[in-house]
Amino acid sequence: MLLQKYTIEEVEQIGEGVNMVCHKLNYAYAVHFCHGGGSTKTFMVSMIGVDGTKVKAVSICHKDTSLWNPKGLPFVVLNVKPGTTPICHFLQDDQIAFLPYEEA
């Protein structure tokens, strides 16, 4: 995989509410560890790399982080305190997100 800078072209909200995220574990068969993600907003993010490569990625924003460990990596890296701002991150390609159903 080529590491490069990406520019965000479009952000579309695809879900809001309590979700479930499943992380692939290192086993001979497909095994995932799943957990509730709390109150979140989920986005589909379209980006383009400096070499022209277009990608889409799922981003999850945790709206309430007040009960998270204040020494956790997101707070150290972003220099914020739990409960003061949403924390957003991209899902890796081997992760699964189950979102609340919204009738169109």
Rank of each mutant, 00 (worst) to 15 (best):
H89A: 08
T40C: 10
G83R: 06
F90S: 09
D51I: 10
I8M: 10
T85E: 11
K24V: 04
C61I: 01
F75T: 04
T40Q: 02
L99T: 09
L3N: 06
S46L: 04
V58G: 02
D51E: 13
A97F: 03
S46M: 11
D51N: 15
K41Q: 14
S59H: 07
L78A: 14
N79E: 13
V55K: 07
E102C: 00
Q92H: 06
S46D: 14
F90G: 12
I8Q: 00
H35R: 14
F90W: 12
M44Q: 15
S59I: 00
K24M: 13
Y6Q: 05
E9P: 05
V11S: 10
K63P: 02
H62Q: 12
I48E: 12
D94K: 07
V11I: 15
F43Y: 15
Y29H: 12
S66L: 09
M44I: 11
N69K: 07
P86M: 04
E9G: 05
E9C: 07
T85Y: 03
Q95R: 14
T40R: 01
T7G: 08
P74T: 09
N69Y: 04
E10F: 00
V31N: 05
K54S: 11
K5G: 10
E10V: 04
T84P: 04
V80E: 09
Q95E: 15
G15S: 11
M20P: 00
F75C: 03
H32A: 03
K71V: 02
L25A: 08
G17K: 02
L25P: 07
G37W: 03
I96V: 15
Q95Y: 06
V58W: 01
G52W: 06
K56Y: 09
A30C: 10
S59L: 13
T85N: 10
Q95A: 15
G36C: 04
A30Y: 09
N69W: 03
A104M: 06
M44K: 15
M47W: 03
Q13R: 08
G52H: 13
V80I: 15
K24N: 09
A28Y: 06
P100V: 04
G36F: 12
T42A: 09
A30Q: 12
D93W: 04
